[in-house]
Computed example of a mutant assay.
Amino acid sequence: MRSQGTVLSINTGESVEAPWAGRRGRTAIDKKSVGDSAFVGPYGIESDEQATDFHGGLLQALYAYAREDLDWWAEQLGRPLRNGLFGENLDLEGFDVSNAALAEQWQVGDAVVEVSAPRIACGTFGGWMGEKGWAKRFNGTKRPGAYLRVLRAGVVRTGDPVRVTWEPETRIPLSAVADGILGDHGILQQVVDLAEENPHWDVSAVLPPWRSTTFKPRPKTRTGPSN
């Protein structure tokens, strides 16, 4: 399993109107620090608002990103990037978020979360960043960050350790899953097989029901966390 990391920043946002914010015309992508601690429930951090049809809900209650990846982007863009700028709820340090495996579970402070999907950049993200061709550029870097489902609610504090508590037998990193969502059917077949092996994990965060019917699972031994 990967090494232990640390919670660097806990961020929330308010829903506001924006002309570049898709069909709803509202976004809560501008996340800012809420201080040293926050309660995380099934729908994410208390007081955090979710303003889109495509992000949020139980399967995408939190979005986590590595501070090291933000620093990499800062070098690429030639400007500083503050915590929360990518719309992330959790900035993590010393933890390779984008190499996390689908369905793996983390202990984050008092909370337990499950990796549900990678982030695929949308038009709202592009409008917020103000960078030409941002969605294609972001999606092509294999630094997607992680959407998380909350398995156990609890308080998360800055400085809390982040550690992997369980991994599936078949390991599919988020960086590869992003390629699958963008058109690599071989990866998507692996994702469907993973869901068959681990029925506690909900595949619909990656593949909506109308799309998952395209693939049939290849039988394997089912596995799952002991608790």
Rank of each mutant, 00 (worst) to 15 (best):
G186L: 01
A153R: 14
L174S: 02
Q189E: 05
N198V: 12
Q190C: 12
H185I: 13
I181L: 14
A176F: 06
N198F: 07
W166P: 11
G183W: 06
P161S: 10
V162A: 05
V206C: 13
L174H: 00
W166H: 09
R149A: 11
L148R: 11
F215A: 02
P225G: 12
T165C: 03
G186T: 15
H185L: 13
L194M: 11
L151T: 12
A176C: 06
P209Q: 05
L194N: 02
A178F: 00
D202R: 07
P208L: 09
W166R: 07
L182W: 01
V156Y: 07
L151W: 04
V155D: 02
L207C: 04
P225R: 15
D202V: 07
R218L: 14
I187A: 07
G159I: 00
L174N: 01
E196L: 08
V162D: 12
D179R: 15
D184N: 13
W166C: 07
V164I: 15
E169Q: 03
R163H: 03
G186C: 08
W210A: 14
D202H: 08
T158L: 09
W201Q: 04
D202L: 09
W210E: 14
R157Y: 01
D184I: 04
L207F: 12
G180Q: 06
H200F: 15
T158N: 11
L194T: 03
T221P: 00
W201K: 05
